[in-house]
């Protein structure tokens, strides 16, 4: 439905690299385990947080309610709708 694949893939690979690839290349040492845990948890939490935000906006049930002035300004600044409103 409302998902676009590119950001999903980009972001997921980004965090997958942090959380899955990087832990393998951590240099050996007494703190290796800690660094691995830190990397994996960072990736997991950050990815989950982004994912939730993304999915919450995939199929919005409501739209933003804007007041008149905001709309006028947005129309001027962003003004990106392809269709002229026929009203």
């Amino acid at each position: 439905m409302g998902a676009s694949y590119i950001p999903f893939i980009v972001f997921t690979t980004l965090w997958a690299i942090v959380g899955i690839v990087l832990p393998f290349v951590v240099p050996k040492g007494p703190n290796r385990g800690i660094i691995q845990v830190v990397l994996m948890l960072t990736a997991a939490t950050c990815w989950l947080f982004w994912l939730c935000c993304y999915m919450a906006q995939m199929n919005p049930l409501i739209g933003p309610k804007l007041d008149r002035h905001t709309i006028m300004i947005l129309a001027k600044e962003w003004g990106n709708s392809p269709i002229t409103l026929a009203k």
């Binding site: 008149r68 962003w78 003004g79 990106n80 392809p82």
Partner: peptide, 11 residues
């Protein structure tokens, strides 16, 4: 998106 030509009359 908000239409570029949105004028005051619309709202």
């Amino acid at each position: 998106m908000v239409n570029k030509n949105w004028t005051f009359e619309n709202v």
